[in-house]
Amino acid sequence: MPIDEALLERMLLLESVSEFLYREADLLDERRYTEWLDMLAEDYQYSVPLRMNVAYGETDAREETRAGREILWFDEGKETMSLRVDQLNTGLHWAEEPVSRVSHLVTNIRLDAVELPEVSVSCRFLVYRNRVADETDFLVGRRKDRLRQVGDSWQVVRRELLLDQSVLLAKNLSIFV
């Protein structure tokens, strides 16, 4: 059977992207935040809209708040992200003292668009946090990433998370989701 070269190419690309996203999860869960920041492009844009309870037929118009204009959980670039890392590194950030136990699970990874040197990737995330004793949060949802090839690896250029909660059931978002 002849090998489908295009398919093979795509599989290798997917493997490379997946490997990158898993490594990113490892860095976050190992609290290597400064190294993790290097995985983000300088023009990185991160947004996590609020999700609302709206009528069928109104989802496009109303379900999520809009980046760049309205109030979101997060709508920021790399500069603010690095301030957050600085805050964690003070050792005085009580929301994460003592440090939480966090696992980032990334799954359902698909290539949405291949426009090298950039690709659009969709996935699901499950972020589990446990802290102190019984304080446990599950943050689950869909994620869209735009990645850019840099050397033999990638950087995240844009990331949009759709968190499947309207009222946030965690007391804060002091971890990177």
Binding site: I71, W73, F74, Q87, H93, K171, N172
Partner: peptide
């Protein structure tokens, strides 16, 4: 957004 709310760098510590 970077100041207040659950992701706010100020308010996070209040909730703790």
């Amino acid at each position: 957004m970077r100041y207040a709310g659950p992701a706010g760098m100020t308010e996070q510590d209040d909730m703790e």
